[in-house]
Lab assay of single mutants.
Amino acid sequence: QKEELKEKAKEAVKRGNKDKARELLKRAGISEEEAKKIIKKIE
């Protein structure tokens, strides 16, 4: 489940939808700070 949400978040970032990505990562139980780092890494 968590990995699936991370994959979806990756796709969202690639489409330029960072808010959606952050939302998905939060749903995966990832903190706001972690989510920001992950999104930065994907960009």
Rank of each mutant, 00 (worst) to 15 (best):
I30V: 10
R22P: 03
K6M: 15
V13E: 02
A12R: 01
A9F: 05
R15I: 09
I39T: 01
I42M: 12
E33L: 07
E34A: 07
N17H: 11
A35W: 05
A21C: 11
A21L: 07
R15G: 10
R22C: 15
K26M: 13
E11D: 08
K20T: 09
K18L: 15
I30C: 13
L24H: 09
K18H: 12
E11L: 06
A21Q: 01
K41V: 09
K40R: 13
E11Q: 11
L25P: 15
E4C: 14
E43Q: 08
E11M: 06
E33G: 07
K8H: 06
L25T: 01
D19E: 11
E43V: 08
E23V: 02
K41G: 11
G16D: 04
K14V: 09
K10N: 04
A21G: 01
L5Q: 03
E34R: 05
K6L: 15
E33I: 08
K14R: 14
D19I: 09
A28S: 04
L5D: 03
A21K: 01
S31M: 05
K10T: 09
A28H: 02
R15H: 11
E4I: 12
R27I: 12
E11P: 01
A28C: 13
K20V: 12
K41L: 13
K2F: 15
E11R: 07
D19Y: 03
K8I: 07
A35N: 01
I42R: 01
E11W: 00
K41H: 10
N17R: 07
E7K: 11
G29Y: 00
E4N: 10
G29Q: 01
R27D: 15
K36A: 14
I42L: 13
K26F: 05
A9D: 02
I42E: 04
K26V: 14
E7R: 12
K8Q: 14
K37M: 10
K20M: 12
L5Y: 08
E32C: 07
Q1M: 13
E11N: 06
A28F: 03
A12V: 02
R22N: 15
K10Q: 07
K40I: 12
I30R: 00
S31W: 04
E3Y: 03
G29K: 00
V13K: 01
K14E: 08
R22D: 14
E11V: 07
R27P: 11
K26A: 15
L24K: 03
A35M: 08
S31Q: 05
I42G: 03
K10Y: 10
K8D: 05
K8C: 14
E4A: 11
S31E: 07
A21V: 03
L25R: 03
K6W: 15
K26Q: 15
A12D: 03
K20G: 08
E32M: 07
L24V: 02
E33W: 04
E33C: 08
V13H: 03
K14Q: 11
G16I: 03
I30T: 02
D19P: 05
S31R: 04
G16F: 01
I30W: 10
L24M: 08
G16C: 09
K18N: 11
E7Y: 06
N17M: 11
G29A: 00
Q1I: 13
E4P: 03
E3N: 09
E34F: 04
E33M: 07
E43F: 07
G29L: 01
A21M: 03
K26H: 09
K14A: 10
K14H: 09
E33D: 09
G16K: 03
A9R: 01
E32R: 06
A28W: 03
A35E: 00
K18E: 08
E32S: 07
E23A: 03
R15S: 13
D19A: 11
K20S: 08
N17F: 11
